[in-house]
Design a protein around this nucleic acid. Structure first.
Lengths: 128, 128
DNA sequence: GGTTGTGTTGGAGTGTGCTCCAGGTTCTAG
DNA sequence: CTAGAACCTGGAGCACACTCCAACACAACC
């Protein structure tokens, strides 16, 4: 079973243009073509793309995703380095989640006390 | 007590260029100038900038921060809309944190079983 | 009063990550 | 056989968020 670029686009939420762009920059391996020269993606490709999207949505830049993709292409000798990248990225996610949680607390406070905060702003305006 | 642009830059972690840029696009109010025409920031400015940075680090685009800044400039009549923006942003943060948590689980699994996953890749390579 | 440091402006340039063509080929349905 | 849809390539263009620079003004110190 294989997928056209439109099918992969729909499944992934990426546009066909973006899929071709990811291929061009080396994030996605060039898939085999059918008799008409059209890309035919395999199930593995779809899964790899889903993984890339997870990396992206958790803040990994394409540059680093590319590094990971390159290592994966080389093969099992790069397993340690790839694992390191994932471990490092996990750390990043932890940090960013902690930041977010801290700001959530600020936001909760601000939202709960919005009336009072605005009243405070008004007295500043009167000072001026 | 007031701060030079260099002092605000150091406290905020932004560059002087970025502070001027934020002023130009309307995220920061133009601060008063000293006799030599240099910007003199007040404590309130420093706090506002810190708040902007929190919004930024939790994923709010400058465009939306600008909308919030504009409303704040108008005054207390915009309080409801501003609160809405914060409530909406809080929702966004919740969503993104949920995404991150889900991916953390994937990452934990992948990292724990990296050896087995790579062995699996190798058998794929032998298939080809 | 000269040198060094810090700031000013306006505008150009950069990196990231797409997004959108134009102009062409191939596939599908009628 | 033909119309329309889907896909192809190469390359230009764009939105976002800075970042850097030239050319100048003022300040602070010795």
């Amino acid at each position: 079973m294989s997928y056209s670029i439109a099918e992969v686009a729909e499944r992934s939420g990426l546009s066909a243009d973006t899929l071709r762009y990811y291929e061009k920059i080396g994030l996605i391996d060039a898939p085999p073509r059918d008799s008409g020269g059209r890309r035919t993606y395999a199930q593995d490709d779809v899964e790899w793309i889903a993984f890339l999207l997870r990396l992206r949505s958790t803040g990994m830049p394409l540059r680093l995703m590319k590094e990971y993709a390159d290592l994966r292409r080389i093969g099992s000798v790069t397993a340690d380095r790839r694992k390191d990248i994932l471990v490092e990225h996990r750390e990043e996610i932890h940090l960013r989640m902690a930041e977010m949680q801290a700001f959530l607390d600020v936001l909760d406070y601000k939202i709960r006390h919005y009336a009072a905060i605005v009243a405070d702003e008004m007295s500043e305006e009167q000072d001026a």
